[in-house]
Design a protein around this nucleic acid. Structure first.
Lengths: 175, 175
DNA sequence: ACGTGTTGGTTCAGTGACTGAACCGACGAT
DNA sequence: ATCGTCGGTTCAGTCACTGAACCAACACGT
């Protein structure tokens, strides 16, 4: 264990968390899982991640209880990786990191996240300023922004061109 | 640029953020800076990070505007690294990650974070449940918990055995 | 029966980041 | 003159990531 693991001397739950999700690509896999990506091939094409790394991350995240491997069809046997409660609990972290990245390093707004009940954009860590509380992840709508490539090559990005709720599985539409 | 950088194909502010703070050790340096660590040697002994990596991270974080290098004495010339507004804006991310790590992977509570006005423990992303709003980082008190080593070797951990406000520079007490 | 395509991997050589130890320069103190 | 401290740099070795190739199970069309 080296990169992203083994901060052994740290008496700190942040270090403990980083041992689990601090490796390269890991948080992007979790982000995609929150967005509704479930299948190996969808992660692969959407992230542009090396296959070996993706296989390692999926296995590790499954072992840590953040994803759950689930058979969704027999013949041919196919599994999907569904995010668990423990993974969903990372949404405030993912949301606040995305907000920070947009506010400090991005010129255009690529996506917006709204409360499905009222359409208000979420605050810095996933709360609704209008309704005044934390919005359950399944009540968050992801709305595409103006800066997105209107004609992406991979099916996942194409699915993300429509508004959709978080966690809701994506529909991979063939070309 | 490789590990933690160059997620070039991602149209995503999370990926953009991870290019900046996604490398190994980087978020722990920011955590320590939020806790009031400012000097090279304090980062070094508290984190147990290789010197070369620390130097690289401090330089990069300074270049990205997250830390600011500041001369605090001449003769001998000494600089300290102070966290900027852009770095302070990462507090919700750091807080929520720490909460997640404690709730899912830690048995003991190592530290508590309270609102200085009312003593209430902060919520999942740094808000005060009692006062009902986001607490400015400088109004957060870090309180040592029971699981900490009562007699640590490095001066920074020793300084953390007392309650202190975030951002407030640590007092490095000689042994 | 046979070739083709899809999905979900494994293997492997090459690159590059991290690690730990050694070394170094500026200065203060004795 | 020597020692100690602070803030680095250098360097060999290790280990994770990268990208391409390969592979196995199965469905489908002819």
């Amino acid at each position: 264990m080296a990169l992203g693991k083994d901060y052994a001397t740290q008496e700190c739950s942040i270090a403990r968390a980083l041992e689990v999700i601090g490796e390269r690509w890991t948080l992007l896999v979790i982000r995609d899982a929150l967005y509704g990506v479930r299948r190996y091939n969808d992660f692969l094409t959407h992230l542009g991640i090396p296959r070996a790394v993706l296989a390692a991350r999926l296995q590790m995240l499954t072992a840590e209880g953040i994803l759950e491997k689930r058979r969704y069809q027999e013949s041919p046997p196919r599994d999907e990786y569904v995010i668990t409660e423990r993974g969903i609990a990372l949404w405030p972290t993912v949301r606040s990191l995305g907000r920070w990245g947009r506010e400090h390093f991005s010129d255009t707004q690529l996506r917006r996240f709204e409360h499905v009940d009222c359409g208000t954009e979420l605050g810095a860590y996933g709360e609704c300023p209008t309704c005044g509380g934390v919005v359950p992840v399944e009540d968050v709508v992801m709305v595409p922004g103006t800066g997105l490539d209107p004609n992406p090559t991979d099916p996942v990005s194409r699915a993300f061109l429509k508004s959709k709720r978080l966690l809701e599985p994506i529909e991979t539409v063939p070309v």
